[in-house]
Structure formats: structure tokens, C-alpha cells
Design a protein around this nucleic acid. Structure first.
Lengths: 345, 345
DNA sequence: CTGAAAGCGCTTACAG
DNA sequence: CTGAAAGCGCTTACAG
């Protein structure tokens, strides 16, 4: 193993000078610099990051802004776990991670959490930009301080993001359509229940729907698809009556739920004793998995939220500690989950 | 950040003594030991692995025994890449990785490579135990030296493996069957082409077939399934004539290929201009992907071989450096790959 | 049984 | 512009 000391000896300089050359620090004559660089290349020397971290004795703070995991939507507990796992792995690099959470259906709580984060003066930020307008306003504070930020899960355009980690929603809709198509005859009818909360935000729901429909359009399929707006997802009676209206006197063969709440539809189907209807949804939350296991839900498309959190922190750590520039985006795999493989995830 | 120095000061001992207590090294009086342990707990002190690694100045050697990636079977290039990536990440922990590769269809080359590895006196081994009998014989050398070894991809039973990383083959067959079942009517006929090389080894192929069939048995499905033995996979004419015999005068609706060579069947189907036959195979090699993209193959089940290699090395590194005991097995996810999500992997 | 001191490989404030 | 020396947090051979 070649060390800085070896290089220094070969180059007839001190280790301090070698260090200055490696990191392009000022105070080295051009002549020495070139000479040392040559020796470094000849020996294919690579710095020992571990020793470097220890000696630098620098600490970094990462701020994390994500929705709190709630009973109605446990989705966000996964990125949280991934973030915590990554934080644990990198803590010896003197990187600390602080969470700022908010209610994902309350833009005010987002603003409050975001402001707290800004006040914390972090070296980097990992965030889910759930509210568009509020993000535009507050993110200027990060831009001003040149604080790097990575978007997770939600891909808002037009910001100076260091990177985006999440699914391509359009393509995932396409994928759902493929799965639906292999299960249905060409004369079938499909409905798409859309829960209308958070209008204006959550554009990925729309992208999923567009992707879903475009699949059938491209295939010139004669399958009929219809959106059904549902005003909320708390009142099961409302959901039932709306769906009843649409199912009566018609044969619906498939249902595509472009959100994580396919379990609500599954519940409806079981209560109404409607069988032989194919159901595809998103995300492996506990309730969805339950209906996947009893065959009411056929497929779930998983966004690998744990990995999104984990990779987000790792990426920022590499950026801070090793100055490694990330790609502008990392598309999470679109994992197809069904009864038969759900336990292996 | 609490350091060993802080603890030493509070406990009125030297840092050397604290170190001895932390690592349970001999030469500390029971009284001091208990006292120091109490202070450590009170301060929730955790050792800085980075500083520890640096000071220990120990180096580790991991030996890797896997098949070479060949044109006919590029599968093994993926674990290799994963291993190399992990090796790169941990090299600053003074862990070096050496490859020993063999021809996966030639047991003699396996023996030669394995013997070379044994002679190398490694601190840990990551290996694909492709040949059962030969493994039984040679692994005794590792057992004798108490060298920990992890099996990757192939789950041989009855060995002192530290851990196994790979897919549950039976379950993956089950999954393939589920996918096939949603695509076919209950009156369909399915064939399973089995390439007969390496008989006696590669029991996972059989497990996949058993898993596949058991799905339909459990469902009491009336779908007919038939195995077709194919003596080799090099002579396309032989393959064609055997398949011709089985396809003539019959309507085959689905083909399940329990190996990575579904592309050979896809090639046959295209040449014979047989359409509307559903085809499911394993592994995302280049040729399989090509036929997935042009819709001849419907689904591929992916074993995530890159992750298998990556995780194998990471696991051994954690074991060697941090003394972290792994689980006895890590089942790789059974990823369903189709035209619509193949590019996001 | 215990501590002082040197060392792992790199970094930096200081002196010249 | 350059080097000697102290230091990051932990480990260990040595002395007592």
C-alpha cells in the first residue's frame, strides 16, 4: 500500500507538500507540483479516505425534510428507515442527520418544518418537495447559501437540485397497464379511482394515469378506461356510494388505483362481494399487502422507498466527504410485487 | 462526540485500559473493568470504527470463487461487477479481493480454481458452489483453517456456511407460475424445456420447476404441463427439431424456461413464426432483454446478481472488520422484469 | 494490572 | 514556497 509518506520520500519533499499537491491547495511551486504529480501517477497512488477523514476532523450536518409517517399513510416510514440506516453507517465520518417532518396534507406544517430546517444551517438537505408553491418560495434560502439539496420521491422541475431520487411516474403507469393488459380480454372495462386531496400538488398521480392510458392508446386497444373522482379517502360510505354508482349495471373488469390506497378499493370489493375484478395499485403498505395476500389485489408497484432514503443520504455523504458529484437523477426501479414474491422484499 | 479519551478521564484510567475493556482484552482487574464499563454505558459511548481501523493496521484478504462470465452465459459478469464495486468501497479498510474463476460446465476447472484459492490463505471466502461433490471434498480445507465462507447464488445444504445469498428457487418457480396463470385460460397447455447439462448439479433448476408445478397443483388448475428434455443448448437445429416434435398438432399456450436461456426458445418461436405463445424465463442477460423488448418474452425473473455479489462482499467486510455476525441467509428479491420496467434496473 | 508513548495515514497551523 | 511537528481517535509493545 502506497502512502503519502512513500510519495514524499520518492519526491524528496515533505508529506505536507504532497498533501497540498493532492488537494490542489495553494502554496506549492509549479515545478514541485508537477514533479510530485508525476510520482503520484507513477505509483497509482490513491488517498486513504479513512485517514483523511480522521485527520480533517470536520463534521457535517444533513437536514432531512419529509412527511411524517401516519396511520393513514405509512409510506414515509420506509424512507425514514433507509435514512436512519444510512446515517448509522456514515456516522463515523462525523455526519449527523436531523429530521424535520410535516403533515403531508397540510402545507402550513410544511412551511414551518422547512423554515426550521433553514434555520438549522445544514451542509446539505434531503427533501420531499410535497408542496410546489411553498417549495419555490423557501428554497431560495438554500440557494442563497449554496446549500446542496436532493429531491426524493417527488420530481419537481425547475430547481437547482443536486439530484433527484425516485420513480418515473409515467413509466410506472405504463407498467401497471402492461400488467392489467395481460390479465384482461380486449373488450374489457377499467376504472381509475382518483382521490382528490392535495390537488395541484402530487402531479405524479396524474403522470401515472397518463402513463397507464397511453399504454392502451399505443396498442390501439379497445379497452375502455374511465376516471372516477373520489372527494376524500376517510369516509368509506362516500367511497362505496360513488363506486356503487359506477359499478351498477356495468361489468368492470379491472381497477387501477394510481395511489397507495388500493386497500380502500379492495375493502369495497370484498364488502360488495364483487369478484373477478383485477386490481392493481401502488406501494407495499401493510393494508395493501394484506389484500395482496388474499388475492383481492393482484399486483402492487413498489417504489422502493427504503432505498430512496438510504441512497439519498449515501449520495450526500459521498458528495460532502469525498466531493463525489452525483448524477442529476436516479430512477428507482419499478418493482412488481405480487402475493408470490412479497415476502422476499 | 465522546471519545476514548473522555471515558479515560472520567474513569481515571488510561486510554489503553479503556481500549482493553471495550474489546474484552485480558489484563484488566475486574474492579476497573466494571467501573469503566459503567462510564461507557453512562455516556453511551460507541467506538469510532474509522480510527480503530486505522490504528489496527490490519489487512484482510477475501478470496472469490465464481464462474467466469462467458459469451454463452454472461450471467456471472453481474456478481463480478457487484463484487468489484463493493471491493472498491472497502479498500480503505485494507481489505483486498482476489478472483478465482472457472468454467461453470467443467468441474475440473472448478477444482483447479478452488485449490488455488485454498493455497492463497484467505481470511474469508465468497463462492458459488457450482459442483456439489467437488465442493464437499475441497471445502474441508477451509473448515480446517476456520476460514469463514459465504455461498452465493447456489444454496448447497450441509455445509458450515457463514451465510447464503441468493434466491429461493422454489418460490421463484411459484412466482413464474402466477405470472403464467394470469396470462392463460384454464384450458391451456404449457411446456417446460429443460437443458440437460450439468445434471446432478444445478438443483435450483429442479426447484424452480417444482415450484412452478406446485402452484397449479395448489390451485387445482386443469392446465397441462409437460417437461421437455433438450440435450444441449449449442445446436439450434437439435433444439428446433425437438421443439417441433412437441409443438406439432398441438396448441401450446405457454412456455416456462427455468434457466437463463429463454432467448434460445424465443429465437425458435420467431423462426418458426409461432405467435401468441406466452414465454417466461430467468435472468436479464442481453439476449433475453432483446426478446423482452420485442415482446417475444413476456416476463423475466431476475435474481439481482449484482446485488448478490455486492452484498456478499459487504457482509464479509462487516464480519471481518467489525465482527458483525450475518444472518444465515439473505434471500434475494425475486424481481419481475418486463418490457415496461427493464430500463429502470 | 496499568500507563506512557509511539504509531496508523493524513492534515494544518506555525515557523522560517 | 516548504518542512517539522502536533493532532484526529484508537491500538499495542513495552516498562514497571
Amino acid at each position: 500500500m502506497t502512502t503519502i509518506k512513500d510519495i514524499a520520500k520518492k519526491a524528496n519533499v515533505s508529506t505536507g507538500t504532497v498533501d497540498r499537491v493532492i488537494h490542489n491547495r495553494p502554496g506549492v511551486s509549479e515545478k514541485t507540483k508537477i514533479h510530485v504529480q508525476k510520482i503520484i501517477e507513477e505509483h497509482n497512488f490513491q488517498i486513504n479516505t479513512i485517514a483523511s477523514t480522521l485527520a480533517l476532523n470536520k463534521s457535517y450536518k444533513i437536514g432531512v425534510l419529509i412527511p411524517e409517517a401516519r396511520v393513514e399513510n405509512e409510506f414515509w416510514s420506509e424512507p425514514k428507515k433507509g435514512i436512519e440506516k444510512a446515517a448509522e453507517e456514515i456516522k463515523n465520518f462525523r455526519i449527523s442527520t436531523s429530521f424535520f417532518t410535516f403533515d403531508q396534507f397540510d402545507s402550513k406544517s410544511y412551511v414551518t418544518a422547512f423554515k426550521d430546517l433553514i434555520a438549522g444551517d445544514f451542509d446539505a438537505v434531503l427533501m420531499a418537495p410535497v408542496f410546489h408553491k411553498e417549495t419555490s418560495q423557501l428554497i431560495t434560502h438554500l440557494d442563497k447559501e449554496n446549500t446542496p439539496y436532493v429531491f426524493i420521491n417527488i420530481d419537481l422541475q425547475g430547481f437547482n437540485t443536486l439530484s433527484f431520487i425516485g420513480q418515473d411516474s409515467f413509466k410506472s403507469g405504463h407498467l401497471a397497464a402492461k400488467l392489467m393488459s395481460v390479465m384482461l380480454a380486449d373488450s374489457s372495462e377499467i376504472i381509475i379511482p382518483v382521490f382528490r386531496l392535495n390537488k395541484g400538488n402530487y402531479s405524479h398521480i396524474n403522470d401515472r394515469i397518463t402513463g397507464f392510458k397511453s399504454f392502451f392508446k399505443e396498442k390501439k386497444s379497445s379497452i375502455k378506461i374511465k376516471d372516477i373522482a373520489i372527494p376524500n379517502f376517510k369516509d368509506l360510505k362516500v367511497i362505496s356510494s360513488i363506486l356503487d354508482d359506477h359499478m351498477k349495471g356495468r361489468t368492470i373488469d379491472g381497477i387501477f388505483v394510481p395511489s397507495s390506497r388500493s386497500f380502500l378499493i379492495a375493502e369495497y370489493l370484498e364488502t360488495a362481494q364483487l369478484e373477478n375484478i383485477r386490481l392493481i395499485g401502488y406501494d407495499t403498505n401493510e393494508k395493501n399487502i394484506q389484500f395482496l395476500k388474499n388475492d383481492t389485489i393482484d399486483f402492487l408497484i413498489c417504489q422502493n422507498p427504503y432505498q430512496q432514503g438510504f441512497n439519498g443520504i449515501k449520495l450526500l455523504s459521498d458528495y460532502l466527504v469525498m466531493n463525489k458529484a452525483p448524477n442529476p437523477n436516479y430512477h428507482s426501479p419499478m418493482t412488481i410485487v405480487t402475493k408470490e414474491n412479497v415476502d422476499a422484499f
